[in-house]
């Protein structure tokens, strides 16, 4: 039970005639990074707003760390850090002052946490600059800093890479991964940049028209997307032997053109290349290929067309 951070039981949200969330059933487990995928209006933000107490469901029940009920839920939200639809910022204050307000309202005694967090998000040099002069990317970074200030157990990031430059995207990805690894932080990220989600998340939740249409792990996704490493070698039989004996895997297929499709080691292609090379196999081609997350998602919702 302790491993379940969040449980949604039949959560429904209706706005007059619009059904924004339709009987959502979901369980998030501790220590995972969830990619929350859906088109505009699919219900992602509505769901996240309910988790953070900004909106109320019209049906169903929400549990955080096993606790339900309005008062208990609100108490559990102290363990959460989030950015929903943009960060809460005071434009006329500096980045440091913004974090000081957050430190005071969260009752964090250690003032040093501010400099530490600013450094973590790469804003240490602009701590004394007024937020009104910040670029969109810098505001996003500051928003992430606010979300991280209390070292939350559960981090909710709604479109965290909006406005970030390529380096910023990589920085945020590395930050998310290190937070997950270092603190065991459970993280849910919604983003339209599915390729980036694919590179960051360990599990995926697909939502469409307010319904969860699929939940799957990275391995399951790779399997469904038929993600594989396509290996072309001068000696196919020797390559197969290396896969079986050195890499101890049988998750591969040999195609009629002698290309080997390896469904294992997708995150460690270097290891495959090194083992093959060290065994004297001349590799003429080694690429990760298959459906992308984007293609898979669009297939699931019917070609990406909305009513």
């Amino acid at each position: 039970m302790d491993s379940i951070i969040l449980e949604a039981k039949g959560i429904t949200k209706k706005y007059r005639q619009t059904l924004a969330l339709d009987n959502v059933e979901l369980k998030l487990q501790k220590g995972k990074i969830y990619g929350f995928i859906g088109q505009n209006g699919a219900g992602k933000t509505t769901f996240l707003r309910m988790v953070t107490g900004l909106a109320f469901p019209t049906g169903g029940e929400l549990a955080l760390w096993g606790k339900t009920g309005e008062k208990e839920l609100q108490e559990q939200r102290k363990r959460i850090g989030c950015i929903i639809e943009g960060p809460a910022l005071y434009p006329s204050m500096t980045a440091y002052q913004n974090l000081e307000v957050q430190r005071l309202q969260r009752g964090i005694p250690d003032k040093g946490i501010i400099d530490k967090t600013l450094k973590m998000v790469g804003l240490a040099d602009t701590a004394r600059k007024k937020v009104r002069n910040f670029s969109l990317g810098m505001k996003q970074r500051l928003g992430i800093a606010i979300a991280l200030l209390n070292t939350p157990e559960f981090l909710i990031l709604d479109e965290p890479i909006n406005g970030l430059d390529p380096q910023g995207i990589v920085d945020v990805r590395n930050l998310i991964k290190s937070l997950n690894k270092e603190y065991g932080m459970t993280i849910i990220i919604s983003s339209h940049i599915l390729e980036e989600l694919y590179n960051t998340a360990t599990d995926f939740i697909l939502i469409d028209h307010g319904r969860i249409i699929e939940e799957l792990s990275e391995a399951e996704l790779n399997e469904k997307c038929k993600q594989h490493i396509a290996i072309k070698a001068t000696d196919t039989n020797k390559a197969i032997m290396v896969l079986e004996e050195k890499l101890h895997t049988d998750k591969f297929k040999v195609m009629p053109d002698n290309t080997i499709q390896l469904y294992d080691f997708l995150n460690d292609t270097e290891k495959v290349a090194v083992e093959l090379a060290q065994s004297g196999v001349i590799v003429t081609g080694l690429t990760v290929t298959g459906d992308t997350l984007e293609q898979y998602f669009l297939d699931k919702i019917g070609g990406g067309k909305r009513d």
Binding site: T52, G53, L54, K71, Q74, E75, Q76, R77, K78, R79, I80, C82, I84, E85, G86, P87, A88, L89, Y90, P91, Q102, Q105, R106, I146, N150
Partner: peptide, 14 residues
């Protein structure tokens, strides 16, 4: 507008 009140609520304040 600045989402400050929303921030207070999502921080766990009643």
């Amino acid at each position: 507008n600045n989402r400050v009140i929303q921030g207070y609520v999502s921080s766990g304040h009643s």
